[in-house]
């Protein structure tokens, strides 16, 4: 049930990561993604993985909880990986492992698939640390603050942030309302469970229409309530909440900076992803 401000993924806990400035966390996640895509070989990815484990430990979110976010897009990962396995277009230095009809599996395509799957895995895990340790409200504040420079090109940053925060605010209300309407139509014999896709979609109309009508009514009410409280856009407006950049955030940025530098060195020193055996040898 989406029944709280803490809807979605947020995992309430007190930790170093929870206490970081949302802006810093957003920047960190971007840096983390950059690190993932900079890494050219498995040792680079191993470094990223080590950093990930460290961050999860620091956030005090149980590993199981972080892994759960993978479940939702596991299908996407497997699908892309399999496509890569069969349709890898690169040159191969070895005999193909499988060569049947249109399918060709080579050593390179296997390596490529594993590499890609690992990247996607790390990507999802990394971003989920952000959503697990940051409330949607803080996330909105962070995005608004980071986008502030765009005001210069007249991008409606304030409006965008307000829309996001109002949307968040209304999620629990509209969820409750949806449940209530579903119950009411069920009481009148509506059947949402049986039949094919089209029949089921049609069965949802008695829920969607009242929901839409109610959303409009609420929007109108909210508009009046905002007007009554002197809302008139971003001009002349002050802001109560101020995000504070602290030593934690600095440490975090330094840490990620270190990670990226390390990966660049690993790339230069070890080269691409295919020569795994050579790379292991060169380490000794």
């Amino acid at each position: 049930m989406l029944n709280d401000v803490t809807f979605g993924q947020y995992y309430p806990a007190k930790s170093f990561v929870h206490n970081m400035d949302p802006r810093a966390k957003i920047v960190l996640v971007i840096a983390f993604i950059v690190a993932i895509f900079l890494a050219k070989n498995f040792f680079g990815l191993a470094a990223v993985f080590a950093a990930l484990v460290f961050m999860v430990l620091l956030s005090r979110v149980p590993f199981g909880r972080v892994l759960r976010s993978i479940k939702m897009i596991l299908f996407v990962i497997v699908f892309t990986a399999v496509l890569n396995l069969f349709f890898y277009a690169g040159e191969s230095a070895y005999e193909p492992l499988v060569d049947w009809w249109i399918f060709t599996i080579t050593y390179e395509s296997v390596v490529n698939m594993v590499f890609l799957a690992l990247r996607l895995f790390l990507l999802v895990m990394g971003t989920s640390i952000l959503t697990l340790t940051t409330t949607p409200v803080a996330l909105t504040d962070g995005i608004e603050s980071l986008l502030t420079p765009l005001k210069w090109i007249r991008f409606p940053v304030h409006e965008l942030a307000l829309i996001m925060s109002i949307a968040l605010r209304f999620i629990p209300t509209l969820t409750d309302e949806t449940n209530r309407i579903i119950a009411a139509q069920k009481a009148r014999g509506a059947d949402f469970e049986s039949g094919g896709l089209i029949k089921r979609a049609k069965a949802m109309l008695p829920v969607l229409i009242p929901l839409l009508v109610s959303a409009f009514r609420r929007a109108e009410d909210l508009g009046d309530a905002m007007d009554a409280r002197c809302y008139s856009g971003a001009k002349g407006r002050t802001k109560y909440k101020k995000l504070v950049f602290s030593w934690r955030d600095l440490l975090g940025l330094l840490f990620l900076g270190g990670l990226i530098t390390g990966i660049v060195f690993l790339n230069l020193y070890l080269g691409g992803k295919f020569d795994i055996i050579g790379q292991i040898a060169s380490l000794f």
Partner: peptide, 11 residues
């Protein structure tokens, strides 16, 4: 069963 504010379920 008539829910609270049943008019909000008209469609």
């Amino acid at each position: 069963m008539v829910f609270q504010y049943p008019e909000y379920q008209l469609f």
